[in-house]
Structures are given as C-alpha cells and as structure tokens.
C-alpha cells in the first residue's frame, strides 16, 4: 500500500505531501501519523502542503482530523505552505480549517511549533 513518508526530527514529525492526494492515501496518512505520534511521543507535527494543487472538502476534513487526533495524543499540528489559489478556493468552498494552526512556510511553521510546544521559552530563557 502507498504511504506518505513521515520523518522524525527531534520531538517533531515532518510530513511533506508531494503526490496527488487520493482519498485512501489521506486516510492512510491519518492512521500512520496517529501511530507514529503514539510510538515516538512526538510533541509536534508539521505538514507541508506546498505541492498540493487542490484541497477539497475530503482532504480538508482529513487534515482537520489529523490535527484533532494529534491533539488528543498530546501533539500540536501546524499546516504550512498552502498555495494562495488553494486557500481562496477552500474558503469559498466553505471550509476554513478553523482550529488548525497554519503558517506560510516550513520555517515559520517550525517557529510556531516551538512556541506551541513551549520550546521557545527555553530558548528565550537561555538567551537571557
């Protein structure tokens, strides 16, 4: 079965969706991520969707599910890299991904993830 790779970096899991997202693949990713969070105790998940040229209601719902499941398992999720045309279409379609953390790109997403998981407090206290 086809899987989207999940990379582990410290306490975070990184996913970059580079293929055309069919429904089963989205469900598989949701399940794989849940297992991986449970197994690794990851505190954060970063999902890069810059290569996705559409997000329809099903994919949007799966991304929302992933964020909710991660939260229940103790990890924060940040979605990054959504193309402007995809964002406009998604909102017009009626899906606003409320409750999901988003950032413009991977770098900003990692910063947000650090803040959400309390890492940057350590960073600032070290700096002082």
């Amino acid at each position: 079965m086809e899987h989207i790779p999940i990379l582990k970096m410290g306490e975070y899991l990184l996913v970059s969706i580079q293929v055309d997202m069919h429904d089963q693949l989205a469900i598989t990713l949701q399940n794989d991520l849940a297992e991986k969070i449970a197994k690794t105790g990851a505190k954060g998940v970063l999902i890069d969707i810059s290569a996705l040229d559409i997000v329809d209601s099903f994919i949007g719902r799966m991304l929302g599910n992933i964020a909710s499941i991660s939260k229940v398992l103790g990890a924060e999720t940040v979605l990054v890299g959504m193309q402007p045309a995809v964002a406009i279409t998604l909102v017009e379609l009626g899906l606003s991904l409320k409750g999901m953390h988003t950032a413009l790109n991977v770098e900003k997403g990692m910063q947000l993830l650090s803040r959400l998981t309390g890492k940057d407090q350590d960073y600032t206290s070290r700096k002082q």
Binding site: I54, V55, A85, I88, T89
Partner: peptide
C-alpha cells in the same frame, strides 16, 4: 488562470466523489 483552474479542479473533485 491558476485560481480559476483550482476552483474548477476542486469543484470537479467534489462532484466526482
């Protein structure tokens, strides 16, 4: 244009499903 393409593809995806 890209935005219109995105809207068409998304709409087609919804109805096909």
């Amino acid at each position: 244009n890209l935005l219109e393409q995105t809207k068409i593809v998304t709409a087609a995806s919804e109805i096909a499903r």
